[in-house]
Nucleic acid binder design. Structure first.
Lengths: 349, 349
DNA sequence: CAGAGCACTCATGCACAGCGAGTGCTTACC
DNA sequence: GGTAAGCACTCGCTGTGCATGAGTGCTCTG
């Protein structure tokens, strides 16, 4: 754990080594780490005083800080960032953990429940809060629509996505629409929307049916009005599964009830999380880590997010964990990454 | 608030009056109440010493206790029970609160979201944890079934309930089944199950289709095998919506992190709550209150539950709140009751 | 530039005292 | 016999003072 793994721009080797130790130890113990301690554990023998000099430099550069005069140093968000990018070694995932994850995934074949349970497990293994979003259907490709009358004024709309997912919505229709007319409208929609993604449909549906907009039963008009409801996964708005609250409160940061509040705030306010996940989604890389203030939100400025995308034929979702910035990134990142791949594999089979 | 509202068996009028004061004040302040305080506020002038005597009696009978020698008295579960049954006055619900509830209910027409938001509001108004269960379909009456092929090996089953609710399930069928055969099977099932509740169907489906069990495509066999999945509301198992965590942590009992843990335990372990709600369901009365140890569960022995049923044409669900035994029953009970009625009205329209 | 020495700063823990709320008990009164 | 007054006692809570120790910053020397 002491080698510097990657090349990097700004810091001398000694500075890096000491920063590494500070971050590593602080992550393990949650106690500010002092010069004496590092002096003892550093392979290269340096006196505490020398180390203090380096530390002071690192503090000036913005990688470290200390809570009060006579306390050890703790990493700043910038310090964590440097640690993650250049110093940290990924920890291999244990075989037993892999096994637990696989078992959990195969325990049920209800996708929703699978995600929920996996979320719980993720929380348990990482001792953090875990988040899982249901697959976004937006980028899924439309296969076909079916219209089934189920009561005089109710219409069941079934939309199939190419990967095999299905979405059903109930619409209120003004008056009863004859079966053959329904079939006819259905056929027409199927022809016009074939091969598009749901997102494309949302954006262009009005144009695509403009010529038939005034069709007699008002059905097309109803569809136009409900296009958001129909082609937006209702789950997208709210369905972020949060689990593992029990685990995160064991973290030493939560002896202070103030932090307690903030985590509950986070759990209740799913919007914040959804918002942040969207930003993660824009990234190209497979997994994304944001540290503390890097997520602009005030509420989350003391938390880090590690998320990864799972992709099932264009339909994607996210899994990840949330925890105090002082988190074991080296362990959590491979874990999240592994779970994401496992879910993708599971869902595509 | 000082009149004794109901007749009751065991206690003298003075004892009741004092018990009333102790419980009432403790609910308001969360501070053990002493004899001196009561002496000052009691309309009938009694010295602290006399009140202490009565209190000692009440303690012996099991209605009061005190945490340590030099502290005031706090009610036991039994004390709360007596208070609820005989002493308490119901508080009228404020017009503004009624308004907020009505507004919330009409904000969306998605039933699930409506319940979720109402739960949040209930938590906010009561400053407690709120629980809402989705309607149990079990006692709903089957209206019709429809079978729609959506992919070569997938079948969408749509089950309508008389009150207008609809449940959709996707089944994997071994091989493709021709459309006309599907229709034929659908018609048959519709005939045989008409007018039954889902629960009855679950219990007797096998018998009702025994004669056609070996029909060529294996469709009936598939239905028999999946009867639980088809006719049990998937939501029944898990769908209890818990909201208002943010509010309950403001309660003074949660300055102790130990209690914090227990409430999180409760939230994560929905099973416990579901289990308790089942017990509440058996009650005949419209609303049910259980205090502390009255719910046998170890985890909930410091919490009280107030729940009420909402009933939409035989399909029922529960709404309620959970909080420390020291809760404002006089306010919470009418609130829960009102919300239950409002939801029922909302859903049946 | 490394390291030793030293003064200084704080957080933490502990013991101790004082306060005040409240009780229980005894005794006196009507 | 119920009511009240007096008094000693208990116990939690708070504030203070003090010792401890970890850790720093700075300076000076090799």
């Amino acid at each position: 754990m002491n080698e510097v793994t990657n090349e990097n721009p700004k810091l001398t080797e000694r500075e890096q080594s000491i920063l590494h130790h500070v971050v590593y130890n602080y992550i393990q113990t949650a106690v500010p780490v002092g010069s004496r301690y590092i002096s003892k554990h550093l392979e290269k023998n340096l006196s505490p005083a020398s180390i203090r000099n380096v530390m002071a430099d690192l503090e000036e550069t913005g990688f470290l800080s200390h809570p009060h005069t006579s306390a050890g140093r703790i990493p700043t968000d910038l310090g964590y960032r440097f640690y993650i990018d250049y110093l940290m070694e990924m920890q291999q995932l244990g075989d037993d953990e892999k096994l637990r994850i696989q078992q959990q995934l195969h325990q049920t074949n209800d996708a929703d429940e699978m995600l929920r349970e996996t979320s719980k497990l993720l929380g348990k293994i990482s001792h953090q809060l875990s988040i899982v979003t249901s697959p976004h259907l937006s980028s899924g490709i439309f296969e076909k629509i079916e219209l089934i009358p189920i009561a005089s004024s109710k219409l069941l709309v079934v939309i199939s996505i190419r990967t095999g997912m299905v979405r059903t919505i109930i619409l209120e229709v003004g008056a009863e629409v004859p079966r053959d007319h329904l079939d006819q409208v259905g056929r027409m929609i199927n022809e016009r929307l074939a091969g598009l993604t749901l997102k494309e449909i949302r954006d262009t549906f009005v144009d695509r049916v403009r010529d038939v907009q005034n069709e007699k039963t008002g059905l097309i008009r109803l569809f136009v009005d409900s296009v958001d409801q129909l082609f937006t996964d209702s789950k997208e708005r709210e369905k972020v599964i949060i689990g593992g609250t029990k685990n995160i409160v064991d973290q030493p940061e939560f002896v202070d009830p103030k932090n307690f509040r903030s985590v509950i705030e986070l759990i209740e306010n799913e919007d914040i999380i959804v918002h942040l996940l969207e930003r993660h989604d824009e990234s190209q890389r497979n997994y994304v880590v944001t540290v503390g203030t890097e997520n602009k939100e005030e509420t989350t400025k003391e938390y880090s997010f590690v998320t990864a995308t799972y992709d099932v034929g264009g339909v994607t979702g996210r899994v990840g964990i949330i925890g105090p910035t002082r988190m074991n990134y080296g362990k959590v990142i491979p874990l999240v990454d592994y779970v994401a791949r496992a879910i993708a594999k599971m869902l595509s089979s």
